[in-house]
Design a protein around this nucleic acid. Structure first.
Lengths: 331, 331
DNA sequence: TTGAAAGCGGTACCAG
DNA sequence: CTGGTACCGCTTTCAA
């Protein structure tokens, strides 16, 4: 194994000089820099992460807590993760994967053992049980999602309340009076996942404000689930002319089943989806949608984490405004 | 921060004793063990990972290289990742996330800097360019997928050749003579992803062996992609009575479009899918399928990694035999 | 059964 | 602009 001392010897300087060349925390003559860099390359030197962490109390690792529930939309989660890894790597940070299963103890372990410097937590619940631990850890933390009581923790998410409002307003403006909300899986509601409730709130408030009629139900992520949803919904209110789909996992099934029932989209039933743009456009009819900006959110989450690592930062809740793109499924 | 010395002092023993209590590498009196354990709990001690890694040359971290291409099936990838994290954690290991983008240099970095002890690499290509680095790293490594020249690296995967054979035989046994293969996205073939070619090989060989007629095409993961596939395929051979779908991303779209064209499944068109069971069963008609045992493969990959960490192991290629479950989409 | 102490490979302070 | 060195927290050998 090549150590900093090997490099120092090869370059004819002291270990500390090599360290300073690497960190740039001290002025080094160009000539010395060159010699050191060259020795580093020649020897194939890689600074030992453990030693570095020990001496500097910095691991350059961010722990990422992600959900693995099947009822969640994996493609979206993956998009998040993908952009986060990229963003983190672009700043010299690595990502450590944790699951929700580890619970509060897992968070404590990772921070206590100095495995990671910071935490990004996805799949936040309204009454998020990990908040006390997170707060007590006093480490840079970013929640993707907004709990009811963030306790001075930094949060970032799409403004789902506004998204709910946006979809309803769009449909109301088009003249729809009876609309249905196809919500996430019941299990998502059961565990109080924050975005589900927030979207529903925006939806309901706007329905009331505009004097519309609406029904809403969760939907099990399967074809039978969609069938059940439609049966239930259309029976409850046969005059429904529009569906808001806040459940990407069943978008395809929904459209397929609606068409199969002889209903034309958008003539008989208009559809607005809440999902990433590429998914909205991959259906047999391009869907009007409120996009879930997974990439933006992911990048933002990492940036907000890095800012906290750089120094104290005021806690904030950052909500991205929803954007609705009109396509062929509404008229 | 609580250190091993703090614990030692609190328990009235030396640091080395605490270390040995923790590692179990030396006989310690029960009484001492008790006192130490108690101090550990009382003080909330967590051994510092960096220090530990430095002193023991063991990080207890496994690097996991995963693909993030949108054309890949994210739910399956996630299932892999999920089981791997669990399996790893169950053995006291953490998972570090890397992407394919980092390339060979990324692998070298992670091992060179002693950030991870071992590597699990997913999304392996037939002519896998990372093999030389991987081999030169001399670290426990498991490839999920089988490259053309594994070079004494350990691999684990579903036996996709056998899977291709299995699907064709099933259909042939049912009397189908003209079948179509809906393959993965063209980009998957382009970059020579290993499973695509292996499945195709099994498929083609068996088609020939049984004297069948077959056409096969990749399929862009979108509804229009499916339409194009069907147009192309049915025009090429109008007597096709069965479709093998090796592309979960478009399963729903395929069924939807087939039905939309007035074709009944399985009466007019039989369908066999290659996908996880839960996906096969979530469609409007339960699909006959060859399962992709993501969970088994994930667990296995981790176990094979741990075995290598425990000591030298003979390299092997482990292929799980495919299992076909007959459901309602074939007759 | 236990303790003392020498590293592990960096970082950063103190000197010059 | 550069060097020497104490120290980060743990593991493990040597000694008792």
């Amino acid at each position: 194994m090549v150590t900093i001392t090997d490099v120092a010897r090869a370059a004819g300087v002291s270990p500390s000089t090599v360290s300073y060349v690497l960190s740039g925390k001290r002025a080094i003559s160009l000539e010395t820099q060159r010699r050191v860099q060259q020795s580093i390359r020649r020897l194939g030197y890689h600074p030992n992460a453990g030693a570095r962490a020990l001496a500097s109390s910095r691991t350059n690792v961010i722990a990422l807590v992600i959900p693995f529930r099947v009822d969640l939309n994996m493609p979206v989660v993956m998009q998040f993760v993908a952009t986060m890894v990229s963003a983190a790597r672009a700043h010299g940070q690595d990502l450590l994967l944790l699951t929700k299963d580890e619970g509060p103890a897992g968070l404590r372990r990772v921070v206590g053992s100095a495995i990671a410097d910071a935490l990004i937590v996805m799949d936040v619940e309204a009454a998020e049980p990990r908040i006390p631990v997170l707060a007590s850890l006093r480490r840079p933390t970013v929640l993707v999602g907004v709990p009811d009581e963030p306790q001075a923790l930094t949060c970032v998410d799409l403004d789902f309340v506004a998204a709910g409002t946006l979809t309803v307003n769009h449909l109301a403006d088009l003249g729809h009076r009876h609309i249905a909300l196809l919500g996430p899986s019941p299990t998502v509601y059961e565990r109080g996942t924050s975005y589900a409730g927030r979207f529903l709130r925006g939806f309901n408030e706007t329905v009331a404000a505009r004097g519309l009629h609406a029904v809403s139900h969760p939907c099990v992520p399967s074809y039978p689930g969609v069938r059940a949803f439609l049966d239930l919904t259309l029976r409850a209110d046969p005059s429904i002319t529009a569906i808001v789909a806040h459940n990407e996992a069943v978008l395809g099934a929904l459209l397929s089943e609606v068409r199969h029932r002889g209903l034309d989209i958008p003539r008989d039933i208009a559809v607005v989806a809440v999902c990433p743009d590429d998914i909205a456009m991959a259906q047999f009819i391009a869907l009007t949608s409120v996009t879930i900006p997974a990439a933006d959110l992911g990048t933002l989450a990492v940036e907000m984490t890095l800012r906290q690592l750089d120094g104290p930062v005021l806690p904030e809740i950052r909500l991205l405004s929803p954007r609705l793109t009109r396509r062929e499924s509404t008229a």
